Simulated scan of single mutants.
Amino acid sequence: MNISVVIPLLNEEESLKELHDWIVRVMQSNQYSYEILFIDDGSTDQSWDIIESLSVTNPNVKGIRFFKNYGKSQALNAGFKETIGDVVITMDADLQDSPDEIPELYHLIKEEGFDLISGWKKIRHDSVIAKNLPSKLFNWAARKTSGLHLHDFNCGLKAYKSTVIKTVDVSGEMHRYIPVLAKNAGFYKIDEKPVQHQARKYGKTKFGAERFIHGLLDLLTIWFISKFGKRPMHLFGAMGILMFFIGFCFAAYLGIDKLFIHPTGRLLTDRPQFYLALVTMMIGTQFFLAGFITEMILRSKQEHTSYKIAHKLNLTTLESSKKY
């Protein structure tokens, strides 16, 4: 199969039929074999009924329905597990992403050999204050911390080689950072394409301002995992040693001062530097222990490998049949 289109949605009953017909026109005009996989993320309107009716008239329509709203990352993750296309396209269900972009995205993945192409909404039709300015700040921070020079990390319109979405694990609220997850997994042919962004035709956005706060927190998580996920002792241990050393230097200075310079001066417990030294050494010890314990937890996880295998060749042993 050429293309799998994965569409997460929440209460988008007005747009689903129009979006489906638009995608079908694009697929038929380009003679693609395709599947459309709708992920209903706990809608409370008639979205699932519409998906069911579409699947009756078009066998290429498939669907997954959540019991409740779990979030876009979980919806994408569930969809990715079910795709069978060589190229996977993701888009939002609100008609702001144009299916007319699909042929060029498919060409870039299938013919040009890219692992991932991210859409770039160069001209936006959103509120400047509510979305544009926060998005610019968010994308700037993402570029600085990830090393990926993409203008729009959060664009829902993306294209993937199938091996990418079968390798990365999209959990939590990490859908914004799939390009970063792909890079960390070893996929480096990542680029972007300016795409058409349309004004919302029906309903209203399902995302509030809190998504940017969550996005920045998730960005810090991604940065930490990519830098220190396999070696947390390098961070916590270094911080612990540094703080313990600073506290020890304070304590040594106070001891020398009391024993040799001002033996009849104030008691050590009457000097604020004493408590500063004590607290600093305690915090340093806690950081070091946190790093040590985290290292032990990572090393004790025998059933989970810390790597992904792309290919195996001429391996017939029982060990080679294990799932990685």
Rank of each mutant, 00 (worst) to 15 (best):
F38W: 11
E173A: 07
C155A: 15
Y34F: 15
S300M: 11
F292E: 06
P263D: 00
K122E: 10
G147A: 15
I246Q: 04
N2I: 12
G71S: 10
Y307W: 05
E101C: 07
G237H: 10
L298G: 09
I165C: 10
A310I: 15
S43R: 01
F67Y: 10
E13V: 03
N314V: 13
N132E: 11
T145N: 07
G85T: 06
L219V: 04
G113K: 13
V88R: 06
I283V: 15
P232S: 11
A75N: 07
M296D: 01
N60G: 13
L116D: 01
M243I: 08
R211D: 09
K204M: 14
G284C: 13
D94Y: 09
H304D: 11
D92F: 08
K166M: 04
A199L: 15
H234P: 02
I109D: 05
R211G: 01
P179T: 13
S146F: 09
Q198S: 12
T163N: 07
V5W: 00
N77L: 07
A199F: 14
A209V: 08
P194V: 07
K17F: 01
I84E: 12
F67I: 13
V164L: 11
D270S: 08
L19N: 00
L313F: 09
V5G: 00
C155R: 03
F38I: 04
H175L: 02
V279Q: 01
N77S: 12
I7Y: 08
P194I: 08
Q286R: 08
T205C: 04
D169G: 00
D45K: 04
Q31V: 15
Q46N: 11
H311F: 08
K308T: 03
F224K: 12
A130I: 03
A182K: 02
F248K: 10
E112R: 12
H151S: 10
P59F: 09
I129F: 04
F287G: 02
T280C: 07
I36K: 01
A310H: 14
N132R: 05
L217E: 07
A93C: 12
D86M: 08
L37I: 15
I117T: 05
Y275R: 02
F80W: 07
